[in-house]
């Protein structure tokens, strides 16, 4: 039998070694590219989401409205805005704009479009998790109890909503290669989605029949899941993970099909 080494030579790495090296290199590069010019440098990767969450806490939380039930307003904001504004919206945006970023790697055969998307997702997720930890520490210091009641399930909910943004980002990226106007549409859908996805209110305060209408929106389900897992005394009236799972699988099938048909044109453009 011919070994791999005899066939390709000793310097050839396995596909997995190449890809993991590339994704790590890209993630580091993306970080420097975005934040390298600032005085505080890559620390901004953390400060940015933290500042955003803090501002939302001030705007919505300080009013101390009663509709959150017995969930403390700052915790509610953290459990809603971090998944939606960082994990969903930013994943979507970062993957969507990957098509424009890939041109810089024309000479590097190792770097594929998907690697760049993966690297950006990795960076977004890691910064989201780190800022979650930092904000939680801050809240604990002030006297709240920021630890989710069911930690693993909460993290799974965060991963689920990130995957939705990732898949949708791939589809938008492919559509954007047909018409640049797609950027305008992605900009437009963000705000309505914020209102329709049970971000700053729990589904318990939505009356029927709107509760049923809203629960057709797949994004409601991971948001409610995170809430339910984070605060054990909250029970969502609409949570249906099966429904969301079907959405996710179909979305990713479509995303992968789109990507496969179109990545050459995106890279060549």
């Amino acid at each position: 039998m011919v070994t791999r080494e005899q066939q390709f030579g000793h310097r050839v790495r396995s596909a997995l070694a190449v890809q993991s090296g590339v994704v790590f290199a890209l993630a580091v590069r993306e970080m420097y590219r975005k934040f390298g010019a600032y005085k505080l440098g890559v620390v901004w990767a953390l400060i940015e989401p933290i500042m955003m969450i803090l501002v939302f806490m001030l705007i919505f939380g300080a009013r101390g409205r009663g509709e959150f039930g017995f969930i403390d307003p700052p915790l509610f904001i953290l459990a809603s805005f971090l998944p939606f504004k960082v994990l969903f919206t930013q994943s979507l945006q970062n993957v969507n704009t990957s098509g424009r970023g890939i041109g810089a790697f024309k000479a590097l055969r190792q770097v594929s479009l998907f690697d760049l998307m993966l690297a950006r997702i990795l960076l977004t997720s890691v910064t989201a998790l780190l800022s979650l930890v930092v904000i939680s520490l801050g809240l604990a210091w002030v006297g709240y109890d920021p630890v989710p009641d069911r930690l693993i399930e909460t993290l799974a909910g965060l991963a689920l909503i990130m995957l939705f943004g990732f898949g949708l980002g791939i589809i938008f990226c492919v559509l954007g290669s047909f018409a640049k106007e797609m950027d305008k549409i992605t900009g437009l859908i963000n705000l309505p989605l914020l209102f329709l996805s049970a971000v700053f209110f729990p589904m318990t305060i939505v009356p029927e029949p709107f509760r049923t209408y809203l629960s057709y929106n797949p994004l409601v389900h991971p948001m409610e899941m995170i809430r339910e897992m984070w605060f054990s005394h909250y029970t969502s009236p609409v949570l249906d993970l099966r429904y969301y799972g079907i959405w996710l699988v179909c979305l990713w099938a479509l995303a992968m099909a789109c990507y496969r048909l179109r990545w050459r044109q995106i890279v060549a453009a």
Binding site: G9, R11, V12, A104, K106, A107, L108, R109
Partner: peptide, 13 residues
């Protein structure tokens, strides 16, 4: 092809 291969000479971004 067998073995490692370079990028086209002098073309790097």
């Amino acid at each position: 092809r067998a073995g490692t291969i370079s990028w086209p000479f002098g073309q790097m971004r």
